[in-house]
């Protein structure tokens, strides 16, 4: 039992928190714009890499973080303009799939430029030194990841329910034409949603870097894992993203420890197939009521 807790549950929940955060990032953009950003995984890596490069260039760590956040916001707004806004609530999924995928290809290639795409150790985040907590060795980074997942999800839920801007974003999601008719700007809503999602990616990026080596080529895998979490939880559901992420984290960690590291992707893939066969709209998603 202790073995299971230590080798599967603790690292699994920490990884799962990161997948959950990716899924929360998807949901943030999806609820407002109806777009899933295939480049989100690259945005996560962009944060880690930006901090690394900025520190490497001689900036103090706090300034490196500020610079990295600025990069994230600028890139997010560019992505929004090129690949998201033309397809807001358009229902043409093939179009935005391709446009955000294209952004992902460009970002992935840019990320491979510094350090020739090789893995790097990141020492400017939360400490990964493990300490003893009730008999289990856990690191502050792992605890922070789980706390960040619930914190970010909670803040976003409050934002959507309690603030005027949050309400406007939901209005755009529910009825684009109606919302525009009463003066809510589609462009602004889409920008806010994209920047919010990029900020979630920034938090995720710091946590990824704090818990493991920074490997720039992993962006696409984060996109995939985050999406499987989304599929389990239900599209656009923040609560579902939290649950889905944690489930995948533990299941994939179990497969990695007990079956072999090369079967992790396979396990997650089979999980996705299972979800689609058993519950195509996810745990918390609803099938559309009217189709015709």
């Amino acid at each position: 039992m202790h073995e299971f807790l230590q080798t599967v549950l603790v690292p699994g929940l920490a990884d799962g928190a990161i997948y959950g955060l990716v899924a929360v990032g998807f949901a943030t953009l999806f609820t407002t714009t109806g777009v899933i950003n295939f480049a989100h995984g690259q945005m996560v890596m962009l944060m880690s890499m930006s901090v690394l490069v900025a520190v490497g260039a001689g900036l103090p760590v706090w300034l490196a973080y500020v610079a990295a956040l600025a990069v994230m916001v600028v890139v997010a707004l560019t992505v929004e303009w090129t690949a998201v806004r033309p397809f807001v609530q358009s229902g043409q999924s093939a179009s935005w799939l391709l446009s955000t995928l294209a952004v992902s290809v460009v970002l992935a290639e840019l990320l491979a430029v510094p350090y020739s795409g090789e893995s790097r150790n990141f020492t400017y985040g939360v400490s990964k030194h493990r300490f003893d907590l009730a008999g289990l060795a856990v690191s502050p980074a792992e605890l922070t990841a789980v706390a960040a997942l619930f914190g970010v999800a909670g803040l976003l839920l409050l934002f959507y329910r309690r603030t005027r801007v949050g309400l406007e974003l939901r209005a755009i999601a529910d009825d684009l034409d109606g919302a525009e008719a009463i003066g809510i700007s589609r462009a602004r809503a889409s920008q806010i949603a994209t920047v919010l999602s990029a900020l979630v990616a920034a938090v995720t990026g710091v946590l990824v870097a704090s818990t493991q080596l920074v490997t720039p080529s992993l962006g696409m895998s984060y996109t995939f894992y985050g999406f499987v979490a989304t599929a389990i939880g239900g599209m656009g559901s923040i609560g579902g993203a939290v649950v889905g992420g944690l489930v995948i984290g533990v299941v994939s960690q179990f497969a990695g420890v007990h079956v072999g590291s090369l079967t992790v992707n396979l396990t997650v893939f089979l999980l996705l197939a299972l979800v689609y066969v058993v519950r195509p709209h996810g745990l918390f998603g609803a099938a559309p009521v009217r189709a015709v």
Binding site: F224, M235, L272, Y276
Partner: peptide, 22 residues
């Protein structure tokens, strides 16, 4: 076959990752 465009895209992306591992 039961899924929309997004589900299909993700299943095929997953297949790509899995095949590379295998």
């Amino acid at each position: 076959g039961r899924l929309g465009a997004i589900g299909l895209a993700m299943m095929s992306l997953g297949l790509m990752l899995v095949v590379n591992d295998m």
